[in-house]
Amino acid sequence: MEPLDTHISRQYNVDLENIRTLVLQMGGLVEQQIEHAITALVQGNVTLADAVIVTDYKVNSLEVTIDEDCNQIIARRQPAAGDLRLVLMVIKTITDLERIGDEAEKIARMAVQLANEERPKNNYMEIQTLGTHVRHMVHNALDAYARMDTIAAVRVAGDDRQIDKEYEGVMRQMITFMMEDPRTITRALHVMWAARALERIGDHARNICEYVIYQVKGKDVRHISLEQMKKEVGEGS
């Protein structure tokens, strides 16, 4: 990818750098939202959960701001080639980040519900484990974005498989709990909702990785297998 700061128009450099930075800022905020939501759920911390729910508007307003900035760049600069791909990927990335924010809010809502339930013996270990992995995945996806690193992007996209497996594990576990003791049904359902939200976050993180590859290589790697994705990235690098 061409460096952003080499346009003849300095203002254009600034505009593009600006949306790139705002995405990272939005990413940082979203990461924090996930972390707080998981902690709130695991620790039964209602105050923290409420804070996550209240903070979601910040994620939303960043999405609107960045969207508007992208509109401006398209209207004024008619970006081409790598610049065009950057703007397109930013528009897509912020949609995924906003949805991640919504999922974090969902987890926080489950945390509020679960705080009223009796705590399980394992202290929501399954959510903690899945949550940590998902959080790392989001972090690494944003890292790949920041460094425009396609190799890292493919690796992180691959992590989604592991997340999906862990999610299935949580589902099986919850079904077992519910069969063994119907009194746990309410709690188990809440946990399932939270796990589902985490699994969705993993999908969004994978999307971001795909956009990184599109931006750098100009190749659309959506809806293809991980193996094909590796091949696409390996070529011409």
């Binding site: 061409e2 080499t6 346009h7 003849i8 081409a80 080639a81 791909r85």
Partner: peptide, 17 residues
């Protein structure tokens, strides 16, 4: 205009030095 192969092309159409 979306994915030129040559750096010189990309530089020109994106307004770079």
């Amino acid at each position: 205009f979306t994915n030129p192969a040559q750096k010189r092309t990309e530089d020109y159409i994106t307004g770079r030095y």
